[in-house]
Write a protein that binds this DNA or RNA. Structure first.
Ligand SMILES: Nc1ccn([C@H]2C[C@H](O)[C@@H](COP(=O)(O)OP(=O)(O)OP(=O)(O)O)O2)c(=O)n1
Ligand SMILES: [Mn+2]
Length: 677
DNA sequence: CTGGGAAATT
DNA sequence: AATTTCC
């Protein structure tokens, strides 16, 4: 609250002569509402992520319609299933009706997905020096690659654009890749004339349009990173390239599976607004179902006029209102939006924020995620048979607490190296085989228990956008014994139940000894305090190998690496010709030294955590045989991975189950054997 | 027969 | 402690 100086946004801008390539003063970000094209942001969204994790562990499933189930809905499904009418978040019964031979795998334990997500994130975060990375959920990553792109723009050689080299580090000239700077990688959004809707590779970049050149460079960077994710890790993704987070994410969904799209403003056209106008407001990241329906109800009151003509009883979330509908509404303005959305508990600058999103403006920074989570929770639902008696509740609390303690140890501790060895700053230094002493990276201060009562059988209101019933929660300080690493998880968990969770439970349901009809329990630790000497964002679950980017973690240092070229970028428009690095260095085409395929977060004892992924087959009774039958088709089971190239993928045979698995996926496959069964 | 989370904001 | 957003 110290200097709310620039809070009012008006800010006359008399003296801001810099144009185009002016880099952002990183310290302040609030009042720069100017063009908003001073950054370059990449967004990655892994394709059908949970399903991809399962497929990498069981490659035979790749060619089959696959759904990943949590209780009675499918969290996601692969693209084979989608062509057969299966959709994300679809009830299992409905999915099976649409696709009788759907293979259904249980995905209630998120550990495998969390683990895969972390390995991909560790790669992305070490891949581009000076870039900041932000994770959103398990399968999305934003990268702010402005510094690297500006640097590489300065090094472009106009006389040899086709043989350009993209530097991933200013310090190690060999780190990078070759690319053709006369074209974009992947798709561009408004599709260039003549080209079909889908394909791009779009036209030569005009060298004097700095934004266009930066986006061109970024498209190649995104393409390179996506190729690494696919070839080295086995995960395809969709990429979006633009100048802020909301646009990068939105445009990435234009060409969905295994593709990427760059939002490329066309001179003299209102490219960005036209792109946004056609979207349903609910589709804009940051405008959720709640906001969306409030706006819709205000513009088209339910009792009155007919909406646009097409309001079929189907149409779940989108609600039919487009960005254009909102912006064309009489007297629409940030202030009007604020009034519409105003209500107790509403967000402070809500109207203005929504207004900006509707215009594609998003000044929010890509926030570097700390290695340690700020919250860990474990939950289970009991829709089929709600909890009503104390023994039941205690049993479930015990299960959840055990799982929570295990996760605390996995995600909040690291191998304790220390002990008179400061030389570990540089690189690896793995304590081989020594007893796994671990120490806390951060410890939680708060324990919270949440419950949720069953909605009730008498068909209460199930409006599409409200939670069927509200959660209630109580919290208390986390007892210190919960941090004792010397005791078994189960023992700590039992004590946690008796001394903390049960009291919390009684506070939640005062005066009722039974008959709560609970449909959900959630146990959560939060309020993490970083352990001194480590910093919450320091080392931890990151890649074990050398990670150059770690040296540029702070903002000041981040800019320093690229800064020599950043400064004169504006003045020297075409004088960079002599700075070309030799493309003959030719980057390592095949193998990436950042990837050593080791397990990372799951170092802590993990054995038989709960259930492995059970496979069910709808059509036939032979559930198990579907998965483990090796002989069915060695030849055809991997067809999907030879799609475009015609190159075959290196494969190995799993010693445990005999299955043929691509080399890159072998470590994931083996992890599945280790997990259960 | 409608998951299992994580984060920001108030 | 609750709501809302995101996946
Ligand atoms: N309401 C949601 C949304 C997502 N997820 C999980 C399952 C997804 O696999 C993963 C990623 O979410 P996405 O929306 O990106 O969906 P997918 O990656 O599965 O599919 P797509 O290829 O459309 O990105 O997060 C979930 O459990 N519940
Ligand atoms: Mn995804």
């Amino acid at each position: 609250m110290k200097s709310a100086v620039a809070a009012t946004v008006t800010t006359a801008l008399p003296a801001q002569p810099q144009h185009g390539a002016a880099r952002a003063k990183v310290g302040e970000e609030k009042n720069k509402e100017a063009d908003g094209d001073d950054r370059v942001i990449l967004h990655f969204d892994y394709d059908c992520f949970y399903a991809s994790v399962i497929e990498n562990a069981h490659p035979a499933l790749r060619t089959r319609p696959l759904g990943v189930r949590q209780k009675s809905i499918l969290a996601t499904c692969n693209y084979v299933a989608r062509t057969r009418g299966v959709r994300k978040l679809m009830p299992v019964a409905q999915a099976r009706a649409a696709c009788p031979d759907l293979v259904v795998v249980c995905g209630e334990d998120l550990a495998p997905f969390r683990d895969a997500s972390r390995r991909l994130w560790a790669f992305l975060r070490g891949a581009v020096a000076g870039a900041r990375t932000e994770r959103l959920g398990l399968d999305e990553v934003f990268l702010d690659v402005t510094a690297a792109v500006v640097y590489n723009r300065a090094l472009l050689n106009p006389n040899a654009l086709r043989d350009s080299f993209f530097h991933l580090s200013a310090e190690d000239p060999e780190r990078g890749f070759t690319f053709d700077a006369t074209r974009f990688a992947g798709c561009v959004h408004p599709p260039p004339d003549g080209q079909g809707e889908q394909h791009a590779g779009a036209g030569a970049a005009v060298l004097d349009d700095p934004v266009r050149v930066r986006l061109m460079l970024a498209s190649h960077l995104a393409g390179y990173l996506r190729r690494r994710l696919e070839e080295d890790f086995g995960y395809t993704s969709s990429g979006g390239i633009s100048t802020n987070k909301v646009l990068a994410k939105l445009v990435g969904s234009v060409n969905k599976p295994r593709n990427q799209t760059t939002l490329l403003p066309v001179q003299g056209e209102n490219t960005i607004q036209e792109f946004l106008d056609a979207h349903q407001i609910r589709e804009i990241p940051g405008i959720g179902s709640r906001t969306s329906s409030i706006i819709a109800d205000h513009l088209f009151p339910p009792g009155k006029a007919v909406r646009a003509g097409h309001q079929e009883p189907e149409q779940q979330t989108p609600s039919g209102i487009t960005v254009r509908d909102v912006l064309r509404y009489p007297d629409m303005s940030p202030a009007l939006l604020s009034r519409i959305l105003d209500r107790p508990g509403a967000e402070r600058g809500g109207g203005k924020k929504i207004w900006n999103l509707l215009h594609g403006r998003d000044a929010s920074e890509v926030k570097e995620a700390g290695v340690a989570p700020t919250q860990i929770s474990v939950e289970d639902t009991y829709m089929a048979r709600p909890l009503n008696t104390l023994p039941e509740a205690l049993r479930e609390l015990s299960v959840l607490a055990t799982s929570l303690v295990r996760r605390m140890r996995a995600d909040l501790t690291t191998a304790a190296e220390e002990l008179t060895d400061p030389s570990s700053a540089g690189s690896a230094g793995l304590p081989l085989g020594t007893q796994q002493k671990r120490r806390w990276l951060a410890y939680p201060k708060t324990l919270r228990l949440s419950t949720c009562a069953h909605p009730g059988k008498s068909g209460s209101v199930s409006s599409t956008s409200n939670p069927s019933f509200s959660r209630i929660s109580r919290s208390q300080p986390l007892p210190s014994f919960a941090l004792d690493l010397g005791r078994p998880c189960a023992e700590v968990a039992e004590r946690l139940v008796r001394e903390a969770l049960l009291p919390l439970f009684r506070r939640l349901h005062v005066g009722r000894a039974a008959g709560w009809n609970l449909a959900l329990l959630n146990v959560c630790v939060a309020n993490m305090v970083p352990v001194a000497g480590d910093g919450s964002s320091g080392s931890g679950g990151g890649a074990g190998g050398r990670d150059i980017s770690r040296m540029f973690r702070t903002q000041g240092e981040r800019l320093r690496e690229w800064s020599a070229w950043d400064d004169d970028a504006t003045t020297t428009t075409t004088t960079t010709t002599t700075m070309m690095s030799s493309p003959s260095l030719s980057p390592p085409r095949d193998r990436n030294d950042l990837f050593d395929g080791k397990a990372e977060g799951g170092a802590v004892a993990n054995g038989g955590s709960e259930e492995k992924n059970d496979v069910e087959d709808a059509g036939s009774a032979s559930a198990e045989t579907e998965l483990w039958a090796v002989d069915d088709g060695d030849s055809d089971s991997d067809v999907g991975w030879e799609d475009e190239d015609g190159d075959s993928v290196a494969q190995q045979r799993c010693a445990a189950c005999g299955h043929v698995v691509p080399t890159f996926a072998m470590s994931a496959h083996e992890r599945f054997h280790a997990m259960g069964d």
